[in-house]
Each structure stands twice: as C-alpha cells, then as structure tokens.
Nucleic acid binder design. Structure first.
Lengths: 143, 143
DNA sequence: GTTATTGCAAACATTTTGCAATTAA
DNA sequence: TTAATTGCAAAATGTTTGCAATAAC
C-alpha cells in the first residue's frame, strides 16, 4: 500500500508539502530535524512552510509512518518508519541512522521487569549508538 | 563519596543552587523538567535562578550524576543517577520513574547487531513505559 | 462542491549568552 | 584571596495557534 492509499483510507490527503517531506526523508540517510527537513525541501525547490513540516511530522508519527530518533542532545530527529517494529542504531559521528529488528530476547526481559516492579509494560525505546563503518575507517586513518 | 567531594575533586563547587536542585531531585519520584525543578525549589523557599538549573543539569549530566529520561513527547526529564549502569521504566499515566538493572542479555544482542551492520556500538538507550502499580489500580476501579 | 490542509503572522515557550556581582574553597 | 558560579536582562531559538485562502479528493 502506498502513501496515497494509506492517507486517503483515513480521509487524509497526500498534498504537495507532504510529498516533499516524504521525498526528503526517503533520500536521507540520517534522521532530520523539522528545520533540516524544511531546508532540504527548499533546496529541492519545493516551497513549503515550516509549519507544515511540524504538522506533517506530528501526523505521520501518530500514524506510525515516521519515527522519532532520540539522540543524547537532539531528540527531534525523524526518519521514515519501515514496516513492523524496529529499533535504531545511530552513528555518533555522522548521524547515519539504521533500523534493525530481531530483538525477541526483550520479551523475557520485559516479563522479568514486570514481575520485579509491578508495572505493566506496553512500550519500549531501544537505541544503540556508536560508529558506523565509514566513520570507523576515517578514525583509523587519523591514528 | 558525597556530592561535596565529587565536585571539589574536579575543582567544582557545591553551591546553594546546586544543593537545592539535588534536594528537589532526591525528593522526586518522577523525572522533572528544568522548569519543574526550578518551581519546586521556589516552593521549598530556595530562591534560585532558572538559568542555574539549566547550567547545573548540563554539568551534572556530563558528570553522570543525573540522567535524562526520554519520553514520547517530553525529553527534558531529569532524575538522579544511581551508581552503575541503569535503565528507566516510566509510567505513562503519572510519570513515576524507576531505574532497573540486570540487563546482561543485551551484550549478545549488541554483538549480533555489530556483526550485522558493521557499526561499533558503545552506548545504548533502553527505556520501557507502561502503567505503574498505582495507576493500574486506579484504572481497575474505573472499569 | 466539500473539507482537509496550507501558510502567514503573531503568540508562546524554551534555551543560551554576556557580564558584573557574589560566594565557595 | 581567587576563581567558579550566580542571576539578571536580553537575545536567540524552537514550537504552536487562529484564520482566511487554497487545493486535494
């Protein structure tokens, strides 16, 4: 199912600003802040308003089409969500962001913590950060 | 080692505003935003400036004395860091925040992801959220 | 044709900075 | 005594809102 259908299905519209934002995110290999997305749209000659970026990101996040990436300092990075449940791996140095899956191990941990604390857990945030292959190479050269 | 020593050791000082902030965090059972910390200090008749709260939180976070909690919306919640490596469990409803440990299982996951992606991982963010025992009780009553 | 969506301008909120005065060591 | 730290006031930054005009369906 494409974006057009996904939105129309809910009575929402695939507008010009929304297309532009999707396009920017598709081309990005790092998470981008609202400001950065706006700037890249302008650079691509898509004249959209910053306000629409904010509103679109909020909407798309709610719909699960886009995901927020939490950095140590920056927490307003957005990436396109791939289908299913994923987690992020972020490069400290260049901000490259990769999604990964296959974390079945968590369920036993969750059960354990629920028993220990009495909480009912229904959401989790797991994110790793380090150096991507490219940046490792650059660091090696400097040594 | 207490706060006094930890700071003096690095040529830093345990000042009145810093004491007040520590005191607020010690009494809190949820993570608190800079604004909230400031307000609680005033409420406790500790007249400190909001600016000092920002500066102190930044410093203490760098020193690992305080930790930032990343919510879905709010990412500026701070809690006192207990020694060692911990993770957070946050209540959706009342924001109660608990630290938990015992996540040795992650290391094998990390190795797996490093092999799969070529990244070198040196930091991670793991956070669960759900309902704390108190809020579960309240929900039950409403049903 | 209908109504979701846009973009502006302005309100609002949050965070950072320079700098003289203060205070912890 | 001396240097880290504070707090003010102001600047910079980031986000949200109301509303008339527009464009997607």
């Amino acid at each position: 199912m494409d974006w057009q259908e996904k939105l129309n299905q809910k009575g929402l519209r695939l507008t010009h600003p929304r297309r532009a934002i999707i396009s920017v995110l598709e081309r990005a290999d790092t998470s981008l802040s609202p400001q950065a997305i706006h700037q890249r749209s302008l650079d691509a000659n898509e004249e959209i308003g910053l306000v629409s970026v904010y509103r679109t990101l909020e909407l798309f996040t709610e719909l699960g089409l886009v995901r927020r990436v939490h950095g140590h300092s920056e927490c307003q990075g957005y990436v396109l969500a791939s289908p299913g449940h994923h987690h992020h791996l972020v490069c400290h140095s260049c901000d490259a962001t990769v999604e990964f899956s296959g974390v079945e191990d968590l369920s036993s941990l969750i059960t354990h913590i629920e028993e220990e604390t009495g909480f009912t857990i229904n959401e989790h945030l797991l994110q790793f950060s380090g150096l991507c292959p490219d940046c490792q190479r650059k660091t090696d050269i400097r040594d």
